Amino acid sequence: MNSTSTIAHQKTEQTENIESRIIEAAKQEFIKKGFEQTSMSDIAAVVGINRPTLHYYFRTKDKMFQAVFASIVAKFLPHIDTIFSTQQSFSEKLEDVIDVYVSIFSTNPLLPKFIIGEIQRDANHLIETFYSLNLDQYLKHIGEFLEKEMESGNFKKVPLPFIFMTLYSQLAFPFLSKNLTMKLFFNEDKDTFNAFLQEWKQHIISQITYLLKP
């Protein structure tokens, strides 16, 4: 590699590093404060750069929000889509899906609160971001899988919103109520809470299985 190529390579690495730092800082700020209460100046300050530099990478807060949303959702939705295409039993698929969500929420415990906050603030903005990243294809595949199983008689015919709300309410609430339940039931012990999550996972599987049982 000649000196010109080396310099270009170093500049590319530096650019990618700064962009990654911006996305990570924006993710933490958005999750903590919500989209509306987070300013570009807040994000620039966390990264340690000035606003003109920040605007060089992301001209608008919406573009930054898309990058943050993609960094979270685009990482696990394709994985979930793959799980549903395997030859495992439905309960095994469901267990794997729940494991993915528990891992994401455990790493980002304020994420459920952030998503619900954005739904309350501006659901259209969240949906537009979802579609702009072509993430709707994954939900469509999962919906098609469920409807096919219902048509074949393997599942009871249940409206998809019932399945969606049953699953996500039970996935999200332990994290939304964590500050309370940690004090009331788990003596603020993280290991006990994590053990509870594993038991709760089996509860969710039972509930969904009962809901769909023909």
Rank of each mutant, 00 (worst) to 15 (best):
V100I: 15
F162W: 03
H79Q: 15
F186V: 05
K156P: 00
I98V: 13
Y168C: 03
K178M: 07
V97I: 11
A123P: 00
I208M: 14
I98W: 07
S89D: 14
M182L: 15
L133C: 12
K201I: 04
A74V: 00
M182W: 03
R51K: 15
A26W: 03
L146E: 05
Q66G: 00
S3F: 08
L135Q: 06
L184F: 10
F76M: 02
L167H: 04
V73H: 13
T15V: 03
R59D: 09
F186K: 01
N2H: 08
Q88C: 06
S103V: 02
I31Q: 07
N2V: 02
S5T: 13
I83C: 06
S169I: 07
T107H: 11
F84P: 03
F90I: 06
S41I: 14
I127W: 12
I98G: 04
Y138H: 15
P159W: 08
F164R: 13
Y57P: 03
F145K: 03
I80Y: 07
A70K: 14
H9M: 11
L197R: 08
F35Q: 01
L133G: 06
D191S: 14
V97Q: 11
T209R: 02
Q66H: 08
F155G: 01
I72A: 02
I18K: 10
S71C: 06
P109Q: 08
N179C: 01
K33I: 01
Y168L: 08
K93R: 14
L54E: 07
F114T: 02
R59V: 02
P109D: 09
V68H: 04
I83E: 06
S169W: 09
L111D: 01
V100Q: 12
F65M: 11
H141Q: 14
T53G: 00
A44L: 11
I142Y: 06
F114Y: 15
G153Y: 07
V46D: 06
S177C: 10
K213Y: 09
H203L: 11
T181I: 15
E19Y: 02
W200A: 03
L176I: 14
E188V: 03
F65L: 13
V68Q: 03
D99Y: 02
G117K: 07
D189Q: 14
A195V: 09
F155H: 10
S20G: 07
